[in-house]
Amino acid sequence: MERIVCSWCRGQNEAGAEACTWCGAPLDQAEKVTDSGWREAPRLRDLAEFRFGNSTCQVEGEVVPVAEMNLAPGDGVFFEHHTLLWKDESVPLGMLPTAGGMARVLGGMPYVVTTATGPGRIAFSRDATGEVVVLHLHPSMELDVRGHAFLVASHSIRYSFIRIRGFNNILHGGEGMYMDQFVTVGEPGILLLHGYGNVFERTLGPGEKILLEPGGFLYKDSTVTMDVQQMPVRTGIFRHGLFLAEMTGPGRVGIQSMYLHHQVG
């Protein structure tokens, strides 16, 4: 039987499907890739729906999209508590045990990560214009994400945080001291991010490098290394240095166009 492969998540879909069953990306539109190799994150149609586990997620709205989940019994998600928009009364909330609580607080990471389990509906949104990016994580994937960019993740994903290596990265890299890390082991999972503005992804070849404004960084495969390069420019009344993140492949890098400009030195 003929199948359609989603160009965003590589998921298999039945012939005739208009949206990907696994990430909601439109299947009847050509992938949009710039001349320099950045592909636009798929713009989900209003009310696009996709599956994870035995549950579904519907994304509604276009300026600040809402991800509404219909959790099946036994399925669960976790999220930062301030992204919760509404929920059914019957949906129980809990806490995800996170190690390194004090280090998280010092690193500016969320101290409280909340869980919700089915059955029932629960919805999430962030606080600024942007796009919901659906990342389908296959088993044995590791993804590093900018702090406070994740919207919600399925319970099969392991959540931790990593310290950004190198004194220069911590001081000048613009990501704070820590990044969220999402790892899948035996089961696949779904991870939803909210990128400010528009979101683009590029796959770097082994050893391929780009320079990136740290505030534009959204996510990367853990195989992509991040270092800091100082530019020959000084800014502001106190002559701050200008630093860019040097990303080196192999792997994917995701960026957001409405970035928070980082200026320290």
Binding site: S36, W38, G130, N198, F200, E213, I255, S257, M258, Y259
Partner: peptide, 26 residues
């Protein structure tokens, strides 16, 4: 490219150059 906050991706040839405020570099 992009709809909400468009990105201007410039492919500079040879010695062509552009200038901009440092805070818009992506």
């Amino acid at each position: 490219s992009g709809l909400y906050v468009p990105v201007c991706d410039m492919n500079l040839a040879g010695d062509d150059w552009v200038f901009f405020s440092h805070n818009v570099l992506l």
